[in-house]
Simulated scan of single mutants.
Amino acid sequence: MRRNPERCPTHPGELLREDVIPATGKTKSEIARLLGISRQHLHDLVAERKPVSPEVAVRLAKLFGNAPLVWIRMQGAHDAWHASRDVDVSAIPTINAPTSSVIT
């Protein structure tokens, strides 16, 4: 099943708020303490006011037993979706470079 490109990818804070933290049975204060971040920082993440930084991604991955890239990719997808709608690129041309030198 393909993702609808018009739907904004989930912010990692929403996943933490709605699924991950409740599944632990721990309070947000306990989770913040275990992560080594302030309660305010965690609150800003779950309220989707702050992005998950690489440093926090490493902490989340350790605490929840997954990889930092899970959190970084989720944040990147969310940020890129918003940027593709907010940034005016109409004056920037597209250059067709040889495929062997294109960064993918």
Rank of each mutant, 00 (worst) to 15 (best):
M1Q: 10
R2C: 04
R3Y: 11
R3E: 12
N4I: 13
P5I: 14
R7N: 09
H11P: 03
P12T: 02
E14G: 00
E14Q: 08
V20Q: 03
T24M: 01
G25R: 09
T27S: 15
I31M: 09
R33H: 01
L34G: 00
L35P: 01
L35I: 10
I37E: 08
I37Q: 07
S38D: 05
S38Y: 00
R39S: 13
H41L: 06
L42E: 05
L42R: 04
D44M: 09
R49F: 06
V56K: 00
R59N: 05
A61K: 05
A61F: 05
N66Q: 08
A67W: 05
P68A: 03
L69C: 05
W71L: 02
W71Q: 11
W71R: 04
W71F: 05
R73V: 08
R73W: 01
R73I: 00
M74A: 12
M74V: 08
Q75V: 06
Q75A: 12
G76W: 03
A77P: 01
H78R: 14
A80K: 11
W81K: 09
W81T: 09
R85P: 02
D86H: 12
D86R: 15
V87H: 03
S90L: 04
I92H: 10
I95H: 13
P98S: 08
T99C: 08
S101H: 07
V102W: 12
T104G: 10
T104C: 09
